[in-house]
Simulated assay, not measured.
Amino acid sequence: MDQSEKLLLGIEHILSVASDLVDEVARLKSVEEECKILKEKVFLNQFTFAEQQVFELTLDGYSGREMQLILSKEETTIKSQDKISYAN
């Protein structure tokens, strides 16, 4: 085997390793996204359904008054269920 054939084999090997690395990075990104989703679910599970509703509306930028209208609840109820804006 001459040097040019060895060089081509080396390049093929490097390309194969690079391809494997690209695949592994894609897999790790997928795992990272799954972990993020699970973390969010675990975080939200510590709240009641009503608290989760207020939390999601808060994240979407709704004001307290808008939440009152959307959820048909009193201001004091919204405040007691809002674990972000009214946290101590």
Rank of each mutant, 00 (worst) to 15 (best):
54 V>I: 05
21 L>V: 12
14 I>L: 14
40 E>H: 06
32 E>F: 06
23 D>T: 09
65 R>C: 02
41 K>A: 07
61 G>K: 00
25 V>W: 04
59 L>M: 12
53 Q>K: 04
34 E>F: 12
37 I>R: 07
45 N>C: 06
45 N>R: 07
66 E>S: 09
26 A>N: 15
43 F>Q: 07
70 I>Q: 09
26 A>G: 11
60 D>I: 03
70 I>A: 11
27 R>Q: 12
36 K>Y: 07
49 F>N: 01
16 S>M: 12
37 I>E: 09
57 L>R: 06
33 E>Q: 12
64 G>E: 14
44 L>Q: 10
15 L>E: 14
33 E>D: 15
52 Q>D: 08
50 A>R: 02
69 L>P: 00
72 S>I: 01
51 E>N: 01
21 L>A: 11
70 I>W: 12
60 D>R: 15
14 I>T: 11
41 K>M: 03
18 A>M: 03
72 S>L: 11
48 T>P: 00
31 V>K: 14
48 T>V: 03
57 L>M: 15
64 G>A: 08
56 E>F: 06
67 M>G: 01
47 F>K: 01
54 V>G: 00
68 Q>I: 01
69 L>E: 14
45 N>L: 00
39 K>W: 04
51 E>Q: 15
32 E>R: 11
58 T>W: 03
29 K>H: 13
58 T>E: 08
39 K>F: 06
21 L>I: 07
54 V>A: 00
25 V>K: 14
16 S>E: 15
64 G>I: 14
61 G>W: 00
47 F>P: 00
65 R>L: 09
28 L>C: 03
48 T>I: 03
48 T>Q: 04
24 E>F: 03
23 D>E: 13
22 V>F: 07
30 S>L: 02
48 T>D: 05
37 I>H: 10
51 E>R: 03
19 S>N: 15
35 C>S: 07
36 K>L: 06
73 K>D: 02
25 V>D: 08
15 L>Y: 12
59 L>P: 04
68 Q>K: 10
21 L>D: 09
39 K>L: 11
16 S>C: 13
54 V>T: 05
22 V>T: 15
19 S>R: 14
49 F>C: 04
14 I>Q: 13
32 E>C: 07
53 Q>V: 00
33 E>Y: 14
34 E>Y: 08
20 D>Q: 15
27 R>C: 05
24 E>R: 14
28 L>M: 12
59 L>H: 13
25 V>C: 11
50 A>I: 02
36 K>A: 03
46 Q>M: 10
44 L>I: 05
35 C>V: 03
52 Q>P: 04
45 N>V: 00
18 A>R: 01
34 E>M: 14
24 E>P: 00
19 S>E: 13
53 Q>S: 01
53 Q>W: 02
46 Q>E: 09
